[in-house]
């Protein structure tokens, strides 16, 4: 998978041509809409009245469109002016408003302004530094502490992001826990490379436990909690042995979940050694 984050600043990557491409790509539109719907579901808003939502990294307003369809009003922030230009041309944008801002420098809103916050495919940009003055961790903490301020008490935030490495997901969750948020990462379709999506769900409620990810049997993901976040996650690699019966069964299981059809059945012969003379 290509990672535009590695090529430089978001404001440079999403220039006019790239922004237009993004906005008219039907695959992109479909994916973004789907993610936004899932994010709204995870947000668990009180829908008896129209909510006022903050959309960080709103881009060309694809996510805003979904918010509007759900009856909410929104304000979108983005660091790319070209993306915002495309968004402002969108005619249907009657309930949304835009501002040009870099989330790594905080949020320009008074306290308790919003009923909820979503961010679609934007948070991972904060993990990269594009100048000597940008320190990823400091930018993340600055963003989360600003977010803590602008949300109404009891509101939630859902941030979908693409971590490059598991360490990035841990770093992000640690920064969120540091400013006082509770919550965790929900991973949808953890067994698929393409459909796999990470959602960081944040809440003010200390006892808040994150909803389960879609189509996942095992509990996966990292929990944000002040008490556990300081512990390092150690990856212990097993050596030798090779292909045990468990390993084979697991591998077949993963393939079945991915939807492969030609996976051999598990039988009593699975993982058995052949006779020496064959």
């Amino acid at each position: 998978m290509s990672r535009p984050e590695l090529t430089g600043a978001a404001a440079n990557f999403y220039n006019d041509t790239e922004a237009r491409k993004y906005d008219t790509n039907s695959r992109m539109i479909g994916i973004q809409a789907e993610i936004t719907k899932r994010a709204l579901e995870l947000l668990q808003l009180d829908t008896s009245f129209p909510n006022f939502i903050l959309d960080v990294g709103c881009g060309s307003g694809l996510s805003g469109k979904v918010l509007e369809e759900a009856g909410h009003y929104w304000v979108g922030l983005d660091v790319s002016r070209d993306m915002l230009n495309v968004a402002s041309e969108r005619e249907s944008s009657i309930k949304g408003d835009l501002a040009h801002h870099d989330m790594g420098t905080g949020l320009p809103f008074r306290s308790a302004s919003f009923d909820g916050m979503i961010s679609i495919s934007a948070l991972q940009w904060l993990c990269y530094s594009n100048s000597s003055k940008q320190v990823p961790k400091r930018r993340l903490v600055r963003f989360f502490s600003a977010l803590y301020g602008v949300l109404k008490r009891g509101a939630r935030a859902v941030l979908q992001f693409y971590p490059e490495t598991p360490e990035q997901a841990v770093l992000i969750s640690e920064c969120a826990a540091k400013v006082g948020f509770a919550g965790g990462v929900v991973v949808d379709y953890p067994n698929s490379t393409k459909a796999k999506k990470h959602y960081l769900v944040l809440s003010f409620d200390r006892g808040y436990s994150t909803p389960k990810g879609l189509q996942s049997s095992a509990q996966s993901g990292v929990r944000v909690d002040s008490s556990t976040s300081s512990k390092r996650v150690k990856v212990v690699k097993k050596k030798g042995k090779g292909k045990t019966k468990e390993w084979i069964e697991h591998k077949k299981d993963v393939q079945r979940k991915k939807g492969f059809e030609n996976v051999r059945k598990d039988t009593k012969f699975t993982g058995r050694k052949r006779k020496d003379k064959f």
Binding site: R81, L98, H100, H101, T105, G106, P108, S131, K133
Partner: peptide, 14 residues
């Protein structure tokens, strides 16, 4: 400009 306020800060300002 164009209906969009520019709230961008320079890294020096923070």
């Amino acid at each position: 400009e164009g209906g969009i306020p520019n709230m961008i800060l320079l890294e020096d300002e923070i």
